[in-house]
Amino acid sequence: MEVLLFGIAKDIVGESQLQFTESDKVPSSVSELKRMISETYPEFGKLTSLAVAVNSEYAEDNVPLDRNDEIAIIPPVSGG
């Protein structure tokens, strides 16, 4: 499973994508993904907000994740 990273999320991880390869460690929902990245990278816990997009739409915590979904971490937006 690949997760796209943007803005400060890219800086925190140091890559533009996160890879989940081992099948027992692939997040099954949005909330699990958020928990896993915040455990591995505590800097995520200090952000104003943390959202996840599934197939380029904002996704609630209970949304399940599939290997074929396009998943992205959306840190606090600041356009305009």
Binding site: F6, G7, A53, P75, V77, S78, G79, G80
Partner: peptide, 13 residues
């Protein structure tokens, strides 16, 4: 403009 600033995934450094 107000809604763009709240929801559109664009980041400013």
């Amino acid at each position: 403009i107000d809604t763009l600033k709240e929801t559109v995934p664009i980041w400013k450094k």
